[in-house]
Design a protein around this nucleic acid. Structure first.
Lengths: 253, 253
DNA sequence: TGTACATCAGTGAACGCGCGTTCACTGATGTAC
DNA sequence: TGTACATCAGTGAACGCGCGTTCACTGATGTAC
């Protein structure tokens, strides 16, 4: 009766599930610790202590401190991506401006609610830590959302038509090296997009995260009013203008 | 003969100079350590060790580890500011485009040459550390340079004339809160600038540092070609387009 | 010119702490014959 | 149904390390009378 490739015995499956649950609990506690102590101060022992287990026991679930960091990074990228997706989902597909704003605000709201996780993924690299390739997938979820909106724009996205600056395309003497630099981006983007669209898109992406980082890391202190409502209004205006850089119409859709 | 307010005895002055020299040496060593170990890992004991003095001796010069961090932060802002100033200085005043590019490249070059100092001032905040007001002055040097260029633009800076997107000024329904949020900025800028000019300037500023941060913190991996020359060309194009956002002409001046 | 005193850079030991990781082990649970 | 074996979560002690900060002190140098 036993087939040759019996898939997995039941007790083994139970154990595996338990493993996964405890690993999740470890990551969860680590995430909380991150919020008080930062990435560099994160300690396996402290996590174990809070979970009431011997520090050595954690090594059954996590290979090393760096491994735990990796789990946290993936988790954070995923949480941010999911949050932004949730923010966009209820908006009807044709309301591209509102979708764009929803995504931008989604990123900012998540960052404000999870400042240390945001700093973990968009702040200074942890010295001595190298992110493994496992982390790149989750990192692209927001990018995918943003370019999804651009793909749904009615007219030719950006280029000479709307808000974007068209006459800048030809560089002032510096040459065309920047076009070659776009190589890796072109791999991941739908074919046929002009260099101009690509670089404007990248700049919009960097400006979005640059703005959120500046706000979160305190560089808007004594620059933009501290009042949360005003900050939000300022960001809305910013996000609108960022959208305009890539052809998202500014007026209400 | 002795006047009432004798200014300072010579030996006291000598001692003071010695103090300043040793303090500078401590900061210098700390800066080097920063490059291998990051802000969170910076250790007074390690610095003392390298200087060949007892760890307790450092406390004659520096009140605490946080105090040393503050010195490093001020130092870094100053170094970045000086570097950018040096980059702009040789460019003739009327060549505004070249000045703009020189400043942008100055920021980037310094950041690439001093990644950990850059991360110290523009990366994640160090948990538990609060920057004292002493640090704000040096932090504004680059900003001053950038707005200096804008002030020298021939026509009305930005607004409806050139590359910037003019029709975005009126927001799509979100209201005018963002104008109020500009309050602190208006204090530090020459009077008479429109809200539009201010917000575009802020966005240019954030995009400049956002771009440098993204490159330095590894977010351009698999996005922009790794080749340093191509990266530089890409940044030149970016800086040109950032300038266009605030009315810096794109063509060769 | 000489002596009592003040200043102050630097020492070295100590306090009390936390860390990552390894290792031999116990003991419960499942597996194969 | 029963027994020998394998798996594996979890323990607790240990290794070897580094940290920030304090404190009583030495000893050179300058100062005031």
């Amino acid at each position: 009766m036993e087939t040759v490739t019996q898939p997995e015995s039941l007790p083994r499956a139970v154990r595996r599930r338990a493993r996964a649950e405890i690993t999740a609990e470890i990551v969860e506690v680590a995430r909380r610790h991150l919020s008080t102590v930062g990435a560099a101060g994160l300690s396996l022992r402290a996590v174990a202590r809070e979970l009431g287990m011997a520090s050595s026991a954690v090594y059954r679930y996590v290979a090393s401190r760096d491994d735990l960091l990796t789990l946290l990074i993936i988790d954070s990228f995923d949480a941010l991506g999911a949050w932004a997706e949730d923010a966009e989902r209820p908006v009807p597909r044709e309301r591209t401006t509102d979708r764009w704003l929803a995504i931008c605000h989604g990123v900012r709201d998540w960052a404000l609610a999870h400042p240390y996780e945001y700093a973990l993924i968009y702040g200074s690299p942890v010295p001595g830590y190298v992110a493994p390739p496992t982390t790149v997938g989750p990192a692209t979820r927001v990018t995918a959302l943003l370019s999804g909106v651009l793909a749904d724009l009615p007219a030719a996205p950006a280029s000479a038509s709307d808000g974007a600056a068209p006459d800048v395309t030809a560089t002032g003497g510096a040459g065309d090296g920047w076009r070659a630099a776009l190589g890796p981006t072109r791999e991941f983007m739908p074919a046929g997009l002009s260099d101009d669209v690509l670089i404007q898109g990248l700049m919009a992406w960097m400006l979005l995260f640059g703005s959120v980082s500046f706000e979160l890391f305190g560089h808007l202190h004594q620059v933009i009013d501290d009042d949360p409502e005003l900050r939000r209004a300022f960001f809305t205006e910013e996000a609108t203008r960022i959208g305009a850089l890539v052809g998202v119409p500014a007026g209400a859709a």
